[in-house]
């Protein structure tokens, strides 16, 4: 994830986060999201100068993955 945040496009980082969530309870993606925001963020004028897009997206993915896993037979959550 660290390498993806530094060297690869953002959409690859998001796909990698989804892949980690699919296989593990990857709590650390929240920290990677924060790291990405600390590195690259500038306040987004369209969203009231919000500057935590990565961590917000990863939090939503995490919560979504949690609820999805509860309903899927493959996961023992």
């Amino acid at each position: 994830m660290f390498g993806s945040l530094l060297f690869l496009p953002w959409w690859f980082t998001v796909i990698a986060a989804i892949a980690f969530l699919a296989y593990f309870n990857a709590y650390e993606i929240l920290f990677w999201g924060l790291f990405g925001d600390f590195l690259y963020s500038a306040s987004v004028t369209e969203f009231f100068n919000f500057q935590f897009i990565f961590v917000s997206l990863f939090t939503l993915l995490f919560i979504g993955a949690y609820f999805l896993k509860k309903r899927l037979i493959f996961y023992n959550v």
């Binding site: 945040l5 530094l6 060297f7 690869l8 496009p9 953002w10 990405g36 590195l39 690259y40 963020s41 500038a42 987004v44 500057q51 897009i53 990565f54």
Partner: peptide, 13 residues
């Protein structure tokens, strides 16, 4: 060092 494609913010480093 880092181009806009690396993030969703359209920023460079």
């Amino acid at each position: 060092l880092a181009r806009p494609s690396a993030s969703m913010y359209d920023t460079l480093i």
